[in-house]
Simulated scan of single mutants.
Amino acid sequence: MTKQQSHQEWLADLESQSKKKQEALMNRIAAKLNRPRVLKKPEQPFRGAPEFWNEFSWSPQERIQHFTSNMEAAGGYVVHVAGMDQVKQFITTKAGDMSASRILRQNQKELSELNLEGALPQINISVWNDNPETDWRSTAAEADFGLVVADHAAAYTGSMVVMSSPDKGRSVSLLPTVLIVIIPIERLKTRLGEILVNFDEVGRESLPAGIHFISGPSRSADIENDLTIGVHGPGIVYALLVDQFE
Rank of each mutant, 00 (worst) to 15 (best):
N129M: 09
N198F: 04
E117V: 11
H80W: 05
P184C: 04
R187H: 15
F90T: 06
P45E: 10
L104W: 02
V149T: 10
V87D: 07
Q22P: 00
G203D: 09
E110F: 00
Q65S: 08
T190P: 02
I211W: 07
P50R: 08
R187A: 12
T139K: 03
P121G: 05
D144K: 07
V172E: 03
K94Q: 10
G76P: 03
G158I: 06
R63Q: 07
N198T: 11
A24I: 14
V127C: 08
A119P: 08
D13R: 07
F213E: 08
A209K: 04
E142D: 10
A141T: 10
Q22N: 01
G75S: 01
P166Y: 00
Q8I: 14
W53K: 04
V127E: 01
Q17D: 10
L14S: 11
G233F: 13
N124C: 05
V149E: 07
E201R: 13
F213G: 06
S101A: 13
W136Q: 10
D130M: 08
F213I: 14
L104S: 08
S171T: 05
L116T: 00
K189E: 12
G193H: 05
G235Y: 03
R37T: 05
M98E: 06
K20C: 07
T2H: 09
V172Y: 03
H212D: 15
D135F: 00
W136I: 15
S164P: 06
L196R: 01
T134V: 15
S59F: 12
L196W: 12
K189G: 02
V81Q: 01
S126E: 06
V38D: 06
V149L: 09
L11N: 06
L207Y: 03
A140H: 01
E142L: 11
Q61P: 02
P217Q: 06
I223H: 12
T93M: 08
N198G: 08
Q61N: 13
N115H: 13
F199N: 02
K109L: 09
P234L: 04
A73M: 05
S215N: 09
V81A: 00
E110N: 05
R28P: 01
T134A: 14
N54T: 14
L25T: 11
A74M: 06
E55I: 14
Q65M: 07
K189A: 12
